[in-house]
Structure formats: C-alpha cells, structure tokens
Design a protein around this nucleic acid. Sequence first.
DNA 1: GTCTATATCATGATAGAC
DNA 2: GTCTATCATGATATAGAC
Lengths: 229, 229
Amino acid sequence: MVEVRSVDTRERILDAAERLFMAHGYEGTSMRQITGDAGVNLAAVNYHFGSKESLMQEVFRRRLDWLNEERMRVLNVMEAEAAGKPLKPSQIVDGFFGTLLRMAGDERRGGMTFLRLLGRTLTEPSEFIRAFLAHEYKEVMDRYKEALFRSLPEVPKAEIVWRFHFMLGATSYAIAGTDALRLVTDWQIEDEDSVDRLDRLVPRLMSFLLGGLRAQLPQFSDSAAVDSK
Amino acid sequence: MVEVRSVDTRERILDAAERLFMAHGYEGTSMRQITGDAGVNLAAVNYHFGSKESLMQEVFRRRLDWLNEERMRVLNVMEAEAAGKPLKPSQIVDGFFGTLLRMAGDERRGGMTFLRLLGRTLTEPSEFIRAFLAHEYKEVMDRYKEALFRSLPEVPKAEIVWRFHFMLGATSYAIAGTDALRLVTDWQIEDEDSVDRLDRLVPRLMSFLLGGLRAQLPQFSDSAAVDSK
DNA sequence: GTCTATATCATGATAGAC
DNA sequence: GTCTATCATGATATAGAC
C-alpha cells in the first residue's frame, strides 16, 4: 500500500484474470472486463504481459510451477522412503491428485478458483494453451506414469494410461461439481460448510479413483491382444 | 439434392455449428465461421434459429432428445425384466453411460463430434446452456438416480450422488481423451483404428466406472455422520 | 427463403502525452 | 508505469431487394 504500485498491478491483473477466465472461459472474457475488475487501466495488460495469450499463460504458470514442484518433491520423498520397492497405488494417487486438491484449500495458491479454471481448460482444446500445458506437465507426468507402471506390474501399461485419463476426468468434475455440476444434475448435495467440503471431498474422490484404478480388467469381445506390450 | 433447399440449409448449419462449437467453444465460434463452413448465407442462422444462443440450444436438442429417450427405454426394459428386484450396478451404468458412448459410433446421431461437444460443455458454466441442460436432463437423471439407490442400498445416497459426478467426469474425459487429452498427457496411446477404438473404450471405461462406483467407502477423519441420511 | 448491404457495437492492441 | 484517445477488425443482428 505504501510500496510500488506496479507489483500490485501485475498481481491484481492476474487475480482478476484467473477469476474471470474461470467463470467465462478464455474467449468469453475481454480485457476490458479484466482491467475493470482489477481496477487498473486498459493498457496495463499489454504493458505487463504483452498480449491476452501471454496473460493466460502467466495465470497458469503462477500456480502450476508450485504445484508441479510439490508433486515432484512428494514423489521423491516417497520413493526415497520406499528404498527401491514399488510404491502403493494409493500413495501415487494421493501424491498426484491429493496434492492438487489440497491446493484448493490454500487461498494463497489460487484455491478453488484456479482449480476450476484448470478443470475447464483441460476440456477446452485451444491450441495455444494445450501446447503450453503439455509442456508444463510433461516431466511430472512421466515420473508418475513410471511410478504407476512399477506399482501395478500385472496391469497392462495401456490400461494404466487410460485409467489415468479417467482419473483426471473424475477429478476435474469433482472440482467443478462443488457448485457447477450441481445444476446439471439438479441433485441437492447435502450442505456442508465450505471448509468441511474439501475435507470430505478428498477422501471421497480418493476412494473412487483407487476403486477405478484397481478395477477388474476389461474383457474385450474380440481376441486381439489385451496388453499391447 | 433435388428437393427443397431450406431443409438442407437448416441441417447444414446445425452440422457445422456442432463441429465448430466442439472445436472452438461457443464464444470462440463466430456466425461467419458457421455459415461459411456450412456454405450458406450469413443471414441464414438468424432466419432459421433467431439467434446464436437458440442455435446452440438446437444443436443440443437435436441429439439429446434421442439420447434421453433411448436411456429411458433401456431402463424401462431392464426394470420390467427385473420384475421389481433391484437392477445390478453394471446394468444401470451401461444403460446410462454405455448408451451415451455407443452414440459415438453412430454418425447419424452426431458421433464423436457431438459427444466431445457435450463433454466440454459440461465444464463450461455458461449460464444459458447450463440451465438448458439441467432442464433437458432432469427426468432421466432422477430415474437413474433412483435405480442406483435401490441397487446399492448399503451405500449412503450422498456417496452415490458424488460417485455419479465422478463417473460423468471420467466419461467426459474418456471421450475428449481420444485425441484432445493425448496432448495434455503427452502419452502415446497405442494406435487403434478408429472403429476399433470405440469398441475397446467402452469396456475399458465400464470397468473403471464400476470399480469406482463399488469402491470401499471413504473414511472421514472426523467423527461426523458418514451417511447424512 | 435467400441474398446484399449495412447498422451498431465490442474487441485486442498501440501511439504518445504525462 | 500509467493514462487517454484511437485504430483496425470482427462481432451479432437486421432491413429490404429479389
């Protein structure tokens, strides 16, 4: 408040953009809305970020850098403790998805707002943001993928990859569902105050994910290889 | 080709809109793109549908009417055959999600294009389309919800509702993932020709969904009621 | 029913004074 | 770094000839 304005300005733009992109999507949000909401001048976005696309990328980078580092750290700790033995599926799932969901409880890290933005963005195939996410995620994904392969040697790799996709989807909806999908299903979910909500959502989702990950293998109707190596 | 043009025009607009909304989202698609792609005049959309919003609704209605009727029909048949006994979870899941996925194999019903549009729209909380979907889905949802309650009497209702949410998410990503999420995860999924792809996806997803639906119940860390009755 | 032409407005971006 | 003013473009929608 007493300090430089420009640091504040940058941060306020990012906060407003995160909120608005979450609510209306990238295309559905204008720079005028963003700067208006942030209480800064229209030209400030282009001055600080160069373009709307770069702003979007920075909105993600600000949160994903921390998240992916944390995921790496957690995995490293678990693998060190396991001393060469494979991890349990529940450890891996918690390291990847639990870390993500616990972010939602931390307002300094974007809280629910960022998580919902992430969830919706994963189904919005805008070329530039998809390419960006693919790059940001690659390293972490590869590490967790390997951990799962070692953890479930009897499950074909292709099956694990698919189930990871499915887990991403369930998690994405778990986040959005806390208020968005409530309308789609039109079901009243018992009210739980917002702090409590997340504490219950995490174990709920974990049970579901682990049940799916360890489910009986599918039977294909034709005779082709189930495990394509 | 020899007949009236206007029927063709309407249908061609719907086809182009479905394709473009899927690829670029509602906000990201302009009427110029739609009419250009459809090979019709710019003014035709407003003549036939009144507005862009109404066009979007019609894109959904064209497919959802059939889908939801089919889901109802399948459920009615199964319940008649069960003669009062609860259905098996696998029957219910197949009736709801299997019917949806099998739509993807039927090009006359929109095929993969419509399914991916549906998947992405469920995470895009545009007010007008969400309200529309909530209305379109309500009746079917209630019927399937009841069937699941009866099928799994030992599972708290709140838990079933949540797991239904998670199943919707996994299914949504299963659809999109066939090419969109491939980039996000950057994993190469073994190539399977497109006809084969769906035949394998359905059993894969079904195994996962059933594993999640029937998973061990979560343990909450506090002592509050697990089944909030 | 289909077209051209256009009204009206919002968008992303920038130039240049301060 | 921040502001005002403005550009060029593209948006939805409509009026009116054919």
